[in-house]
Amino acid sequence: MSDIRVTVWGENVHERTNAVVRGIYPEGMHSTIAAALNAAGGITARTATLDQPDHGLPPGSLEETDVLLWWGHCAHGEVQDAVVDRVCNAVWSGMGAIFLHSAHFSKPFKRLMGTPCNLTWREAGERERLWLTSRNHPIAAGLPDHFELEHEEMYGEPFGIPDPMETVFVSWFQGGEVFRSGVTYKRGAGKVFYFRPGHETYPTYHDAHVQRVIANAVRWAHNPAPRVADPCDAPNVPVDTALEPITERGPRLHGQDDRGFR
C-alpha cells in the first residue's frame, strides 16, 4: 500500500519576519509539521509556501496530493483566487483538507464553509486544555481524555461556522472561554478537519499530542477512491435525449383496473 501524499502549506511570513517565531521554527512551521508527518509512518509530506510561484500549488499539483494542510494568518488576502479555486475544486473532487489555527479565516476555508468563520480571541499565553468529546473517533486514536498546552492564544465562542458533522475536541482556556477546537465536515467528495491550536509564537507543533492529532487527521481525511472528474459540472449538464414513456404494464393485481386502482 502506497503512502498518503500530503502537502503542508504555510504562509512562511512570521518565520521570516519575527525572531521569536524563527527561534521556535527555524525551518518554518510547515517544515516542522511535515517532518512529524514523515516520521509518523505511511505518510509522505512535502511543503509549499505563499512566496513560491502559484503559492507552491501550480496546476496539477493537487492531483498528486491526497491531503492538504493549510496554515495561514497575516496574509490571507494575498492568496490568489485562482489558487483558492484550485483548492476548493480538489476538495469537492475528493482531496482531504486540514485547516490549522488561524486558517479558520483563510479564503479556502471560508469558501468551503460558506459562513463568516469569525470568532473571539485573546493573545495572552494562556493554558489551553483540549477535551476529547468523541472517544472512538479515528482522529482521537491513541490520545488521552484530555491534554494541555501550557501557552496558547485563546479562541472563544461564538465561532461562525456551520454545524459540524462531528466535534472531536472542545477547548477550555484560563479565562473561562470554551471553543469547538476540532470539527469535521464533508464537502463534496472531500473530508475537511479544522484543528484550533497553533499560534506561531508558541511551540505547539512540537507537541507530541498535537502531532498525533494531525497524523490521525491525515489518515481520516484520506480518500483512496478516484477523484470526481469535474465536481462543478454535473448539476448543470443538459440531457440530450428525451426519456421514452413507459408503456408496458406489469401483472395486474387482483381487483386492479386499467388505471392501477383497485
Rank of each mutant, 00 (worst) to 15 (best):
residue 167 T to D: 00
residue 219 R to A: 09
residue 236 N to H: 11
residue 115 T to H: 04
residue 112 L to Y: 00
residue 181 S to H: 02
residue 229 A to P: 07
residue 28 G to V: 07
residue 43 I to G: 00
residue 235 P to M: 11
residue 32 T to N: 04
residue 162 P to F: 06
residue 37 L to M: 11
residue 59 P to G: 10
residue 59 P to I: 09
residue 214 I to A: 05
residue 142 G to P: 02
residue 104 H to C: 05
residue 148 E to Q: 14
residue 24 I to C: 08
residue 69 L to D: 02
residue 122 R to A: 09
residue 46 R to G: 11
residue 174 Q to G: 15
residue 136 N to I: 00
residue 111 R to N: 01
residue 170 V to E: 14
residue 3 D to E: 15
residue 197 P to N: 13
residue 155 Y to G: 00
residue 253 L to T: 09
residue 259 R to K: 13
residue 227 R to E: 06
residue 9 W to I: 02
residue 227 R to K: 13
residue 86 R to H: 10
residue 34 A to Y: 05
residue 20 V to A: 12
residue 53 P to F: 00
residue 117 C to A: 14
residue 260 G to A: 08
residue 49 T to V: 13
residue 49 T to N: 14
residue 12 N to D: 15
residue 217 A to K: 03
residue 227 R to D: 02
residue 14 H to K: 07
residue 112 L to E: 01
residue 161 I to C: 09
residue 126 E to F: 04
residue 230 D to L: 08
residue 222 H to Q: 04
residue 35 A to S: 12
residue 6 V to N: 06
residue 72 G to D: 14
residue 34 A to L: 07
residue 44 T to R: 15
residue 254 H to M: 06
residue 66 D to Y: 10
residue 52 Q to D: 12
residue 222 H to R: 05
residue 167 T to R: 06
residue 237 V to C: 06
residue 108 P to D: 12
residue 220 W to K: 03
residue 246 I to L: 13
residue 174 Q to K: 08
residue 184 T to L: 10
residue 195 F to W: 14
residue 175 G to Q: 01
residue 41 G to R: 09
residue 214 I to Y: 09
residue 37 L to Y: 07
residue 162 P to K: 07
residue 8 V to K: 07
residue 34 A to E: 03
residue 132 L to Q: 12
residue 94 G to Y: 09
residue 106 S to F: 03
residue 256 Q to F: 09
residue 259 R to A: 14
residue 218 V to G: 06
residue 102 S to R: 12
